[in-house]
Amino acid sequence: MNWNTTHEKPKALLIPILGMLLFVFFIIKAASLYPGGSQYSSTEEGFSFLNNYLCDLLDSTTFNGSPNPSKDLARLALFLLCSCLTVLWYYLPKLFKRKGVHLVVIRVTGISAMIITLFLSSNSHDLVIYIAGLIGLIAMITTIVALYKEGYQELFALGIFCLAILLLNYYIYESGLLITVLPAIQKITFVSFIGWFALLNISLYRKMRTTKNVQ
């Protein structure tokens, strides 16, 4: 596979940044429309940072049984996020100088995880989480190792943090230990990942732009 950046357009990497910004905007708007109800209290009003998962915004009905007016915006936000990150995962191998099969792994697993995540609003939510999580974990670990080998220390450190907090999510979810704080940890995880993806995207954009100017 040819990883040469000669004919690539670095402007394509503006798409992930725009998509992530739109995701944040629409998910906040969706949360503002959420009528209320959580797994802890069906009578709770509005979207709770401490008690509601972001996935609650995708459901057709809330925990109190009423229609969920936030679902369309939340699903749009999810589509935008997965679509824009698909672009990032496609180009991400170009960040690295060392060629090898690991670059194929990064691209294929990263894109696959995003495509599978699109089905979060289906009735197979837990299955989607497990499959996308496993494939995404492979993409993450491969990327983190490549970052370490090529001296991207800050991106490597943030990647390790994201990996650790992701594993913490899974541990809490499976063990039930401290399960009441998981909704809050989930949101911290999202913010951390978006920050990491944004920095990866910026670093890649700068490299591709520099390479294009040199050529």
Rank of each mutant, 00 (worst) to 15 (best):
N2S: 13
L33V: 05
F47M: 10
A157Q: 10
G19S: 08
T62K: 03
K207E: 05
L163N: 01
M1D: 04
I135V: 15
G133I: 09
I115Y: 01
W89A: 02
L88Q: 05
A30W: 06
N52Y: 06
L76A: 14
N4H: 10
L163H: 00
L21A: 14
S66C: 00
V24H: 01
F23V: 01
P16Y: 11
S60V: 09
T86S: 15
G133A: 12
K29L: 15
R107P: 04
P10Q: 07
L92N: 03
V145M: 06
K149H: 10
T211D: 11
D126T: 13
L21G: 10
V191S: 08
S112R: 01
Q215M: 08
N123V: 08
K9Q: 12
H7G: 12
I116H: 03
K11Y: 13
S121W: 14
R206D: 08
G133W: 04
P93A: 10
L177Q: 09
V108E: 01
F49Y: 15
S83Y: 11
I172F: 09
I188A: 14
L200G: 02
P16H: 09
N51V: 00
V128W: 06
Y130V: 15
T143M: 04
L58N: 08
L14F: 14
A132R: 03
T211R: 08
L88M: 13
G37P: 03
L155P: 06
S60E: 13
G65D: 07
L199C: 08
Q39L: 12
F156A: 02
T180Y: 12
F156P: 00
Y205M: 06
F63P: 00
S203L: 04
N4Y: 10
T143I: 08
S41W: 05
E174V: 12
A146F: 02
T61M: 11
A184Q: 01
V191E: 01
M208F: 11
I160M: 15
W3T: 10
G46I: 14
S38N: 13
G136C: 07
L85N: 07
F197T: 03
H125E: 04
P10L: 13
S83I: 10
